[in-house]
Design a protein around this nucleic acid. Structure first.
Lengths: 326, 326
DNA sequence: TTGTATGCGTTATCAG
DNA sequence: CTGATAACGCATACAA
């Protein structure tokens, strides 16, 4: 058996109540006994039993993180940061992968969330209606990188991201830019389009429609982009941008000489391709940390909707448009 | 408050004990009452309190997974599979990132593992001595992709992986192959070298030494590989192979015409580069699933050390060596 | 087959 | 400041 609080109390010659207080609420115990108990606890290797503690306090010490796909480096980065921040706040993190299935997602939130101190929900595609169901939960729920159902949230500034990207392209001389969008039901995609509809530079935007946010989606978008006569293409995410790069190469379109490409996310592989991908970097680690802080922190005083800044990272995939396009 | 077992019992007109049995050990309850209780529980949205259950059964319903870096797609893939398999076995997964720090790793196992039903430890670099400390734990610990300290483990067949790779290169005509190794303290790397020392084809192996298992490590290894006069290079992992590809391109060495490259892992990005990377595919999902099964399954009858097969995936980065090298 | 009573390890309440 | 005691929600030994 593991060593329990009673063992510590007995060894220290105090009651269980005092031992508990010495460890949990040190101020309520005399200095000598406090130190004695703490020392004995350390020597015995005492570790409080979370279950027993939860039963009485109602707090489990667990946070629940629900993501659509752990294999996606984007969510993996968020998970890593969440886990690190939670640990330093004394919490463990239960991670659940919803496999892009909003039904499973709701079930996970209900099941795992019920025993957790709070839920961080990454659910870019869930409908507002489904979100409302989740919001009824007893536990606090915080949305990561989307907003909805009146739930508190942390998001990145998608609008500003596209505006930075387009401004960069405009400065290079581009006047006709294509946007290869992500899934039509994506909350982020909608915000990106908001940004495109509200630019502060004179650029014509060609909408290439919705695409699967994967490599193949970018491959398809590449042909559309070239056919559209645009000299630059902005994609919903980096993986799509890689698809554009690949297709451009195979069809003989040079990047960036003939076509500039800008991605979104700044996933690690963006630096590993040639040319390096110009992309809008998301502060994923900060997103995760902030999410934990908001969830655990003052439930009251914190702003319900936090927006984090993004930053355009310029690499080799963008350059001035070809002369004949002017 | 959440609905408790007593609420269900009251609503169904039975004792709490009967309600408990109807849900946990249905065989011990008469069919009518069993159905009644189950129906009432469903209607009321009853969810058993894990903490209360743990307190009495000693089982928490949590598994603990410790990985060195969640941001590494290799471990993310394992985590995804572990999480999925655990869920279908009624377990939640607490994920902890040890940040490649074996001290933190040991602490995490002790802290989180104490309240979990078992620990899955991905710890490729931990020393045997540190491992022994962890092995003293009360909870069962299973090692993922390494062996040591007499702990049960699931690993992939690293030896066979390099042998498949070299056999493939030999068949293409290569007779001098370089190996760009990973960290010297990596368990996997040692197994790879075992494989290289015990080949079944006539190939000269050039040892390029230990490298950081990152892109830059591959960049450095590329120059060594070319200088060594080898016509093919095998790297410790795919990310290093990408570094080789990149460096080869910038120095004018054509892949695969002048130099064949083989990676290890088959991470997703291996298909996204040009040429596609020939690599030894690890069954990461299966690794995760098997790990969960072994941890939860018969603690006695299962083999302590399970080895999963790997498979060479041939893509564009390997070809016959240049004629003049013969 | 069912109900009653007990205890898991901890914290909260209350009396001292 | 300290100790005895109850209570959290559930599963089980035991009695019926």
């Amino acid at each position: 058996m593991a060593v329990t609080l009673r063992d510590v109390a007995r060894a220290a010659g105090v009651s269980a109540a005092t031992a508990s207080r010495a460890l949990s609420t040190p101020d309520l115990v005399s200095p000598e006994r406090r130190e004695l108990v703490r020392r004995v606890a350390r020597e015995l290797g005492y570790r409080p039993n979370r279950a027993a503690r939860e039963l009485i306090t109602g707090r489990s010490g667990y946070l629940c993180l629900v993501v659509p796909d752990l294999g996606n480096p984007y969510f993996a980065a968020v998970a890593k940061a969440v886990q690190a921040r939670a640990r330093s706040a004394g919490h463990a993190v239960v991670v659940a992968d919803s496999e892009e299935d909003s039904l499973l997602e709701a079930e996970l939130v209900a099941q795992l969330g019920a025993q957790a101190d709070g839920v961080l929900l990454c659910s870019p595609r869930m409908s507002a209606a489904d979100l409302a169901v989740v919001a009824d939960d007893e536990r606090p729920v915080l949305l990561v990188n989307r907003e909805g159902a009146g739930l508190p949230s942390v998001v990145v500034d998608n609008r500003d991201g596209v505006r930075q990207a387009v401004r960069h392209l405009h400065a290079l001389g581009h006047r006709r830019v294509a946007y290869a969008g992500g899934p039509a039901d994506s909350w982020s995609d909608a915000r990106r389009r908001d940004g495109l509809a509200d630019l502060d530079v004179e650029v014509e935007v060609v909408d290439l429609g919705a695409h699967a946010p994967v490599f193949a989606g970018g491959v398809g978008a590449a042909d559309l982009a070239v056919a559209s006569g645009a000299t630059a293409v902005l994609t919903y995410n980096d993986v799509m941008a890689l698809g554009v790069l690949d297709r451009a190469r195979s069809r003989g379109t040079r990047v960036p000489e003939d076509l500039s490409v800008v991605g979104f996310d700044d996933v690690p592989v963006a630096t590993l391709v040639t040319p390096g991908l110009t992309t809008v970097a998301m502060p994923l680690a900060r997103l995760g940390r902030t999410a934990v802080d908001l969830l655990l922190g003052a439930r009251d005083a914190t702003p319900a909707h936090t927006v984090l800044p993004v930053e355009l990272v310029v690499r080799g995939s963008t350059a001035p448009p070809p002369p004949e396009s002017r």
